[in-house]
Write a protein that binds this DNA or RNA. Structure first.
Lengths: 139, 139
DNA sequence: CCTTACGTTAACGTTAACGTCAATCTATTC
DNA sequence: GAATAGATTGACGTTAACGTTAACGTAAGG
């Protein structure tokens, strides 16, 4: 084991970037925006498994079209303190909001998929017809 | 019926913007980007039902995080000619790609919803505990 | 010791998706 | 007919999310 004593692997910024198909610049930006905070070896960034999980969450958020600040808010939501009831209630409200947008997003996806299938069957039919026409012309 | 002879209603840019919660600027931009092309009454834009349907599709795309050019590409895909088999095959490929990203997006949504539920039940539990503590303290 | 690879910060550049504002036109209303 | 409401084009401003470059440090290898 190259690292301290836990059975955990560590990663340089370049390794992590390569693995996830992003650039180092992007990782530094995410850190600047408070989405990641890797440890340091002197000045060098060291990423551990926990950081990788976070990164995966960030990228999932991006695939859903969230902005970096929306992603940060979701982290804040998840990490927020559980001691004041006012806090907890506002949190539950925000969670409910998120759920709603996720659900309309899912129904948007479903209708987009339906549209897609319509277009696809049309295209397949058209393709068969074109090919049939070609056969006749060659005969 | 205020308009020509078809039973269709027409809309000014302001009406349409108001109805969909966007600004006129946005509608003009979408037109500039080739996503909409309303008729004109002199210089004024006139939107019909067909334009509204398009707009709805645009906004659905936005909710899914698509860029305007991705949205335009999807329109191009839907409207593209059905006469050359090469065209049709490349089209089927692109459709397949779209389907894949939609499906990973949907599974992203599902896992995000699961995370959300975990956090929510935790928050509810914490809220009950806090409230129980308050009761005891008041007693 | 020199090169090469990889890292650092800082700063400026770029693109998309609008917002904002100015100058002007048109139709309606008092 | 003067004012008001909404429309037009054109241009410049703004923000987010990076890309790119400069200037520099550091560890490994030949």
């Amino acid at each position: 084991m190259n690292d301290s004593d836990t059975g955990e692997r560590n990663f340089s910024i370049g390794e992590l970037a390569g693995e996830f198909g992003i650039t180092s610049r992007t990782l530094r930006l995410y850190e600047e925006e408070g989405l990641l905070d890797p440890q340091r070896d002197g000045t060098r960034r060291i990423y551990n498994e926990r950081n990788r999980v976070r990164l995966r969450l960030i990228l999932r958020g991006k695939r859903l079209g969230w902005s970096l600040s929306e992603i940060r808010e979701s982290f804040d939501l998840y990490d927020s303190s559980h001691d004041e009831s006012a806090q907890l209630e506002s949190m539950l409200g925000k969670l409910e909001q998120r759920r709603e947008t996720l659900i309309t997003q899912r129904s948007d996806i479903d209708s987009a998929l339906q549209d897609l299938e319509r277009v696809e069957t049309n295209a397949r039919r058209a393709l068969r017809e074109v090919q049939a026409g070609n056969k006749r012309r060659r005969a």
